[in-house]
Design a protein around this nucleic acid. Structure first.
Lengths: 244, 244
DNA sequence: CAGTGGTCTAGACCACGTC
DNA sequence: ACGTGGTCTAGACCACTGT
């Protein structure tokens, strides 16, 4: 960079490093290429490894790098656009989401509030995975209160995907009126992290969807998207790719 | 916590610390309360300050804490829900967004691609701030290509908010057909960080909106929302609050 | 096994807000 | 001036992935 900005407000080293690396990534590296290891890079830039890591962390957060323990640091492909909004009046994703299993469990209190159930009340809890180009991009927990699927009261206890599909089939019978969504930043719980092939605590985008049937909340889904690789799209059509 | 889990897969200290602190925040602290300082907390938990900081960082990312240099660490209020989608066929926010200024500038190449202009071509670039309860929650750059506002060719060069309002008024004359949006994780540029009262590099949610008029992209907005304090809402109505 | 990134330590100094 | 969080260092060891 040409910014020799008089140091009146000295730029942190890791910040400057980040811009240097960003430029290098743009000009000298191809997607998938492996960078030199952290000790080498730190030495080359004359900083401590912790400082170098601070810069790498930000670049990973921005989706420019991908780091894997035991392997190395590679240049990440541009983020994938995944459609999350605008499914309109149809229940989402028999193709996009892959059922994993289902059980009766008490939803977190925040979800119970949305479902308008009493805390501690059980709900069918369906676990699903969303894949894109073979990679898992999101893990979801879909909470369906018993009142929404009365046909399932005396469930014959199949397990795994079969049971999940059973709940979903019952749910999809209902006439969906609309949905609410919200997006916020979070960190991956241990189980989600495992399925998304990330470390616990990795930054994720939490998408909470409230499905409305007959004026009430019939189900709530909390989906955990990998923040490093995903760009969530809402609206008419998938947007073209962005970068930087 | 009671998890004395055999250490077969030893939990990182900062992760365990985080859960301990989370529980403490839920039970023993009120919103706005000031925590003991980092050196004290680190000593109390018997870890190095860097390790303690790793836990605090995650909690800040999740919107549970707010840290300010020279002041201290406080317990954050629940995230604010801010409506970003579903403005329908109306141009957004004469009330929510406060115009700051405007100039003719070449948009970043990613934006130029969306606008379908040649790279380097100038566009009216309007800067706006969005406030919620007095706090700045988002900074936006709205790019309007000259072709969208032909009435503004020989602009008489007012400056600041006046000029911004001029461009907006002209834009809002157009019949809006629809919009596309995408959300991704980013880190705050220095100028945005300043207006959002955060440090450069702070985690933000980047919302890119494409405004469609007569089948074309009439304008593109890139809004930078504080990821720590905001929950973006899409759809029918603002969702009730969530926590955890 | 060697090499990678992930965690952790015990210090130091700096920038900022408040008093 | 003082106390806060922010940056930075130079080490150490651990967990994971590949060969």
């Amino acid at each position: 960079m040409g910014t020799t900005q008089l140091e009146s407000v000295p730029e942190p080293k890791y910040w400057h490093l980040k811009t240097v690396l960003t430029d290098a990534l743009d000009s000298e590296f191809a997607v998938g290429e492996i960078l030199p290891n952290e000790r080498e890079l730190a030495a080359r830039f004359g900083v401590a490894r912790a400082t170098l890591r601070q810069a790498l962390e930000q670049l990973e957060l921005e989706g420019r790098l991908q780091r894997r323990r035991g392997v190395g640091t590679t240049v990440a492909p541009p983020r994938v656009g995944v459609a999350v909004g605008d499914t309109g009046q149809t229940w989402p994703g028999t193709e996009t989401w892959e059922p994993v299993d289902s059980e009766a469990a008490a939803p977190p209190t925040a979800v119970a509030r949305l479902l308008d159930t009493v805390p501690g009340e059980l709900a069918h809890t369906v676990r699903r995975i969303r894949r894109s180009h073979g990679q898992a991009v999101a893990a979801e927990l879909l909470y369906v209160p018993a009142r929404s699927v009365p046909g399932l009261t005396g469930i014959d206890a199949p397990t795994g995907p079969a049971r999940a599909r059973l709940v979903l089939r019952e749910l999809q019978r209902l006439p969906l009126e609309g949905q609410d969504q919200s997006v916020e930043l979070g960190s991956a719980r241990a189980d989600d992290a495992k399925e998304l092939d990330r470390l616990p605590g990795a930054p994720v985008l939490l998408v909470t969807t409230r499905y409305i049937v007959a004026g009430r909340t019939a189900a709530v889904a909390v989906a955990t998207y990998r923040a490093d690789t995903c760009r969530l799209t809402f609206g008419d059509a998938g947007m073209q790719l962005l970068a930087g």
